[in-house]
Nucleic acid binder design. Structure first.
Lengths: 198, 198
DNA sequence: CGAAAATTTGACATGACTCAACTGGAGTGG
DNA sequence: CCACTCCAGTTGAGTCATGTCAAATTTTCG
């Protein structure tokens, strides 16, 4: 079944007994979305922890002038969504939208709290996940501050080749914090230099 | 004693029994630093989780050209240091240095692991802390992408007035991702407009 | 095929950086 | 108490990275 993905992901960090797996599985709900559908909308409280089983999503912020800023992508076997809204149960500042047909598994806030008490190992699991996520966010900020856009783009293509192939360029530009026009410019520079130096 | 700060901070999120407090306290070590001393140096493995009791520290990255980029400040009652290095026990990419005379409480990696098994509540505590930290990192990235430097600076002064007063300007510039000269420029613009419009 | 979405291109504008010189404390020591 | 130095902050001229806007082109897909 589709729950295997999540359960494996958890078991990898924090081995689970069969009973624990069953308890967790009992709280999981499968959900299907079409391309373009919103999983979470700005202003709503995010009532679910969301794990992407297949497909891909993006989480973005809409600024006053109506520009989109991509906060994060979510692909197979990643947790996604507005953690801040979920953990404080306050209105989300971000939108999470499906880039493609997407299947997720989710856990409601109340079920999650109950799970934490029934399977305390999950606290450890999410602590570990969050440590890694926090570390990579930190590095992302530092890169934004210390590397020019061209290098950031190259690094991104090396780090997440799947994402580069699968999502439209303008979203990658937004994730990197540059305009789509400028990314286009960068790409043409890169393809020029990769051709001979005649 | 000086351990009260940490223990209170933990108890606030995750109420502790007296016995649990004692177990935790038994692993805590107090440490004093002078202005300018390093708590963690790039390249070393960060073997301690560090909590600032008094004073202030900064964590920064040194890029290839030798420029400093401030990752985070740490002030009273904040956890600080290179989480990534600590959690993976690999060499740190960042330096953590005291801006002033500073007192910290720390827990070694091994003790921390042992604590997690003796006082599982700590997993929950750090999960909660990390959720908040991750959320604020996310917002920091989005602000960098969606607001011009002047607004970011104003927001920073409103959010962390203590830090603005206590640390040198050039560090704040670095934290915001701009040069000290440009921050100086911004500040003079701000003080001009606050004076009459003659 | 045809329309909408994504990407590219180019002219022009600007926010932010660099570099270098200058100002103004805060020690320090004679 | 002055002279000297050191460090933080300021100022200004010139430059560069990246943004804006508008149009052209290519790709996607019903």
């Amino acid at each position: 079944m589709e729950y295997k993905n999540v359960l494996n992901h958890i078991s990898n960090k924090v081995p689970l007994t069969e009973e624990e797996e069953n308890i967790i599985a009992s709280k999981l709900k499968l959900k299907h979305y079409l391309k373009g559908q919103y999983i979470i909308q700005e202003g709503d409280v995010n009532r679910h922890q969301v794990f992407v089983v297949s497909g891909k999503v993006r989480t973005f912020y809409l600024d006053q002038s109506g520009k989109e800023h991509i906060v994060a992508f979510g692909i197979e076997n990643w947790w996604t969504g507005d953690i801040c809204s979920f953990s404080t149960q306050t209105p989300a500042e971000f939108n999470t939208q499906c880039i493609d047909k997407t299947t997720v598994v989710r856990i409601s806030y109340d079920d999650m709290e109950q799970l934490y008490s029934e399977v305390p190992k999950l606290e450890r699991y999410f602590r570990i996940i969050l440590q890694a996520a926090y570390g990579s966010m930190t590095k992302r900020i530092i890169r934004n501050h210390s590397m020019p856009a061209k290098e950031r783009y190259v690094l991104f293509t090396e780090t997440y080749p799947e994402i580069v192939q699968q999502v439209p360029q303008y979203m990658i530009a937004s994730y990197l914090g540059i305009t789509k026009e400028f990314l286009s410019n960068i790409r043409s520079q890169l393809s020029d230099t990769s051709k001979g130096k005649s």
